[in-house]
Design a protein around this nucleic acid. Structure first.
Lengths: 227, 227
DNA sequence: AATTTGACCAATTCATCTTTGGTTTAGTGG
DNA sequence: CCACTAAACCAAAGATGAATTGGTCAAATT
C-alpha cells in the first residue's frame, strides 16, 4: 500500500484527507511543497497538480515566498502609495482632484465645526506670510487638508490623504518662475472664497468655488509646462 | 565668529538659512540631529529647541527612526484597510459613496470605452441571473467596480477600491429578508439607467442617476435596520 | 513520450544590526 | 539652586543578508 504508485485522483484524495485530518494552525498554513510531497510519498510534480486543482476549486491559495494556505484568497489589505505614484500620470491626478475635492468642500460646509474653521483660517494666514514657494506650497497643502478634515468623515479624510500624497510626489520639484509667491497670487482670493462659503454653510457654493480653484490651478500648471 | 556662542534665535536663523540654501533631496529629508548639530556648531539640545519651533510652525516633521523632513507631516503613508474598517461607521461609508461614485459615473461617461461598457453589461446580466443574495451582491459590487474602471483613471480606480473594501466589510453579514433577490428589485432598473447614461455619453445624467441609486440603497438599508 | 529530478528564479519572511528622534541621568559651571 | 551639556539609553523604523517557498525549466530517466 505504501509503496503503491499513486495516480492523479489518488493524490488528490490523499490531499483532501490530509486537509480534513489536519488541525490547521490559526493562519491555516499547510506544509511547504517539498515537505508535503515527502509526507504523502508523491513527487513534487504530482503534488503540484493536485494542489492546482484545489486552488482552482478555491479551497486553498498560494503565494510565492509565503506558502500555501487553507481558505479563500484574502483581498489586498493595503493600498500601496508607492505603486500609485509610479503609475499615475499628472493628468490623472488633477482629474481625481477635480472629481473629489469639490465634494469634500460641500461636505465640509455641512459638517465642519469651529475647530476646523480655525485651522482653515490659520492655513490661509500662514500661506500669505510665506516667503518661499516651498513654504507657501506646504500651507496651501495644509489648507486643502483642513477642508478634507472638516468633512468629519474619517473614511473620506483617509481617501483624500492617499490622493494628496500622490499629488505631492508628482508635482514635487516643479520649477517655479519666481522665488516668492506674488502677493496677488490668484489662489489667495480663491482660498478666501472657499473658506467663506464653507463657514457660511453654503455647500453648493463651496463645491463650485473649489472646482474653479482647481481648474485655475490646473491651467496655471499647464501654462507653466508649455513654457 | 566660528567659536562664538549662539543664542536661541541665532540657532533658529542658521537653521532657516540651512533649509533655504540646501538643495533638499526628493524626499526632503535633512541630516540627522547628531550630524546637523555638528554642522551648525551648536549643541544637540539647542538644535532640538530650534527644530521644535520649526515643527510647531509646520515647516518640518519628524519621526523616530526615520528622520526629519521638510514640509507638512503626511498623515498616513499607506492606507491600512484594517484600521479604516475599525474606525468608519456605516453612515460615513454611505456618505463617502455618495460623494465619490456619482463623479466616477460622470467620468465613466466621458472616458469609457467599448470594453468597459461590455463589462458593465455583463455585470448587469449576471446580477439578474443570481439565485442567491451573496451572488447578487458580488455582481452588484462588480458593476460599481466596472463603472469605476470606465473612468480609465488608475488613481480613481484605486481610491474606489479602498472605499469598496471598507464598504463590503461593514455591510458584511447583513441579514436579508428573502433568500432570493426579487425579480423587480429596484436596483435592476437603476443599474440599467446608469448604464444607458454612461454609454450614451451623458455625464451629468449618469452622475445624477448614480446619486439617486445610492440614495435608494441607503434608504433601503436604513429601513431594514429599523425593523 | 511522459515523468522525475535537480537546479535555478523571484517573492517573501525572518533575524540581526544600524540609524534616528526622544528621554533620562549624571556631571559642570555659574 | 538653576541652566546647560554631554553621554547613555530607549523604542521605532530602516537596512541588510540568509533562509524559505511557490513557480519554472531543462537534462536525465524510465
Amino acid at each position: 500500500m505504501v509503496f503503491q504508485e499513486k495516480n492523479e485522483s489518488m493524490v488528490l484524495d490523499s490531499l483532501r484527507n490530509f486537509l480534513a485530518d489536519q488541525e490547521l494552525a490559526l493562519n491555516g498554513r499547510l506544509p511547504p511543497e517539498r515537505v508535503l510531497c515527502e509526507e504523502l510519498n508523491v513527487t513534487r510534480g504530482k503534488l503540484r497538480k493536485a494542489l492546482a486543482v484545489l486552488e482552482g476549486e478555491g479551497q486553498i491559495w498560494r503565494h510565492v515566498g509565503r506558502g500555501t494556505f487553507f481558505g479563500p484568497r484574502p483581498i489586498n489589505n493595503l493600498t500601496d502609495v508607492e505603486y500609485l505614484n509610479a503609475h499615475s500620470r499628472p493628468t490623472e491626478v488633477i482629474e481625481a482632484r477635480l472629481a473629489i475635492e469639490p465634494q469634500l468642500a460641500k461636505l465640509a460646509a455641512v459638517h465642519g465645526n469651529a475647530r476646523n474653521f480655525a485651522e482653515m483660517r490659520r492655513c490661509i494666514r500662514m500661506s500669505r506670510n510665506a516667503r518661499e514657494w516651498r513654504v507657501y506650497e506646504s500651507w496651501d497643502n495644509n489648507f486643502h487638508q483642513a477642508v478634507a478634515a472638516a468633512t468629519c468623515n474619517s473614511l473620506l479624510i483617509s481617501l483624500f490623504d492617499t490622493l494628496n500624497i500622490v499629488r505631492r510626489s508628482t508635482v514635487w520639484g516643479q520649477l517655479r518662475p519666481t522665488r516668492l509667491p506674488p502677493s496677488d497670487h490668484k489662489s489667495f482670493a480663491e482660498h478666501d472664497a472657499i473658506y467663506e462659503a464653507v463657514v457660511g454653510r453654503e455647500p453648493e457654493l463651496a463645491a463650485n468655488l473649489m472646482r474653479t480653484h482647481l481648474k485655475s490651478v490646473r491651467d496655471r500648471t499647464y501654462a507653466a509646462m508649455e513654457v
